[in-house]
């Protein structure tokens, strides 16, 4: 790869991100034109348009971008931690724990902050359980960690099914939307943005070490990487990023698994490139998916998780087929 190409790719990703945000801001039931956006920046915009932009579209677009970026980065980190291309942010059972928390809130008829609060607690419980089991046995091997995560996920899955099957039918639709991922009520604040930026900066700082860690713990240790410390940071960093994503939008599937892989297949295997690339592409992907989710069958809103899979599957297959099988 020449020295120039990475920067060109990043520039393209940056432009795509910008375009997706623009399209998202301009799409919806209330007509908003590009001129309105320009007018908004100089503070000269009709009250209705201002309200739609400030209260609805901007926060929702921002939430979509932050969630998508956090999931894609968490996916990259989990794949390195577990050294497994099939790993995604939810593989260690975190989304299951969050789901049980969120569903409990919905069951009890609690909404708003309760929903993200209980999801947060559920996710933390799940992280704690997996970490407790994995570190207590003293074996941080990838297989052991993966098995622990899969088993814990299965446990949460049983609880989720129990809650779904015993809930009143009126609340089941809300539960399903949460499980599939939905951005209609989503807002992010300074905390989520701060975590994402800090996490990205730390991940980028460690990018070279991640390149080495992918080759195996022993290789990494013999090349001077502090393997245990790095793997612990990966575990908690990826978990925290996933927590901010699921507490914002529920368990949106597919972004964390597919975005990193699409980028790897197009040549961004080096984590110094893959990390910024994933952030931009993950954010863009979810903004586009959410725009479609709220406009395709308007005024009916679709869960964004359905759209991510519907666009994600065919495009992934296309890239898989066109990737050179060197």
């Amino acid at each position: 790869m020449s020295q120039f190409q990475p920067f060109r790719l990043l520039l393209i990703a940056l432009l795509a991100a910008f375009a997706s945000v623009l399209v998202s801001l301009l799409s919806g039931s209330v007509e908003l034109s590009f001129d309105d956006l320009i007018a908004y920046t100089v503070g000269d915009i009709p009250a209705l348009q201002r309200q739609v932009l400030e209260d609805i579209r901007l926060p929702r677009t921002l939430a979509a971008f932050v969630t998508g970026a956090a999931l894609a980065l968490a996916g990259v980190l989990m794949q390195v931690l577990l050294r497994n291309p099939l790993a995604d942010p939810y593989i260690l059972g975190l989304s299951g724990g969050a789901a049980v928390g969120a569903l409990a809130s919905i069951m009890l008829g609690l909404g708003g902050w309760w929903l993200s609060g209980t999801a947060f607690v559920g996710a933390l419980v799940s992280v704690g359980v997996v970490f407790g089991i994995a570190s207590r046995s003293g074996r941080w091997s990838t297989t052991h960690l993966l098995l622990t995560g899969v088993v814990v996920s299965a446990g949460w899955g049983a609880l989720i099914n129990l809650m779904l099957s015993t809930s009143a039918s009126a609340s089941v639709q809300g539960m399903l939307f949460w499980l599939m991922g939905d951005l209609s009520q989503s807002r992010v604040g300074l905390m989520q943005i701060g975590i994402l930026i800090t996490g990205s900066a730390l991940a980028l700082r460690a990018a070279r070490s991640l390149n080495v860690l992918v080759r195996g713990d022993l290789v990494a240790a013999s090349l001077g990487v502090h393997v245990n410390g790095l793997r612990l940071s990966l575990f908690f960093g990826a978990s925290l990023l996933t927590v901010i994503a699921v507490t914002t939008a529920g368990s949106v599937g597919f972004v964390g698994l597919v975005v990193p892989h699409m980028l790897r297949l197009t040549g961004a295997r080096d984590h110094r490139l893959l990390i910024p690339f994933s952030l931009l592409a993950g954010g863009t992907f979810l903004v586009v998916a959410d725009t479609l989710a709220r406009t395709l069958l308007a005024p009916q809103q679709l869960p964004v998780g359905v759209i991510t899979a519907l666009i994600g599957v065919p495009s992934f297959i296309a890239i898989l087929r066109s990737a050179p099988s060197r």
Binding site: Q79, V80, R83, N84, P85, N211, V214, R215, G216, L218, V219, A221, S222, L223, G224, V225, H226, V227, R264, R269, D270
Partner: peptide
């Protein structure tokens, strides 16, 4: 530190992992 050792000592291992291959 591992980094200080790695500046002096190089180890050829018997096996390598390439689950997420690079060039």
């Amino acid at each position: 530190s591992p980094a200080q050792i790695a500046e002096v000592v190089g180890l050829l291992l018997q096996e390598s992992v390439d689950a997420l291959p690079s060039t």
